[in-house]
Amino acid sequence: MNILRYLIKKLLRLILLLFTISVLSFTLVSLSPIDPVQAYVGAEMMRIGPEQRQRIAERWGLNDPPVVRYMRWLSSLMRGDLGTSAIYNQPVSQVIRQRFFTSLGLMGTAWVLSGVLGFLLGVLSGARAGSWVDQIIRFYAYLLASTPAFWLALLLLIVFAVFLKWAPVCCATPPGVLPEQVTFAQRLHHLVLPALTLSIIGIANITLHTRQKLITILNSDYILFARAQGENLFGLIWHHGLRNIALPAITLQFASISELFGGSVLAEQVFAYPGLGQATVQAGLRSDVPLLLGIVLFSTLFVFTGNALADILYHLIDPRIRLGVES
């Protein structure tokens, strides 16, 4: 009952959020100095006369007041119609769906990998706080926290693709091969470097956070009592440490989806990986307004879902919240 009310609250919040962002981004785009007709027609602008131009503007309803245009956009949005992407010549929803599934493999791999590795490194570092292992891990994490993702991608590209030739230089599939003929191994081979980039970058945050949390817990009363019962360091971490740091770490990892998305934009650019990040860049570079607006809304939904999942997980797992609602 309680969880239902909570979910409804979340849903209302999401609707309000999406509405705010739709108003915001639509306003911004209509204030933009970029002429949508010119952006659409591109280089062929020279061959179009003012009358023809006027006709396009009329057909798109560009002469209507902004509020009318917004309402029109919103009502088609409600019907699931995000408009048509000019650069891909496909419905925006279809572009986003295809591209998102390509990115999802990349982001998912990086998300799991950075989460697991970061957590393990954080536990190792926190358990041996002050030792040389801890020093090395912390140095690594602090350094990575300020490393530009695209530069790391370039480094990996130079080392593993150009010099060692272990990995392909670009794309999600080998060039010249039909999509249906691409094997799983080939896909994986192309996924390795971009996923590695995002994982390495993502590790820093979760490592430092887990380390700090574990140190706090190892100084707690219940760890003292467990030590008094004869528990050794491994037992302390295995029986009490992991249990208490896992939830915050999972929450953090869900909250990092926003950063992950940003990183994927850059990594996909370097490796020419045809995912949603690359589509975002193309939409921005080539003034594909419907696609850009669609991606803004979709990425909001994506990030919100990540955060909401973390929150819901907390409610389902933590007994203090699950059972102790009254207190």
């Binding site: 204030l31 933009s32 970029i34 939409a283 803004v296 994506f302």
Partner: peptide
């Protein structure tokens, strides 16, 4: 609202809008 948007996407949107 701003915290719930991915930075990179907003950056691209804003850079595009401001020309």
């Amino acid at each position: 609202v701003f915290l719930s948007l991915p930075h990179m996407v907003v950056l691209i949107l804003l850079a595009f809008v401001s020309g």
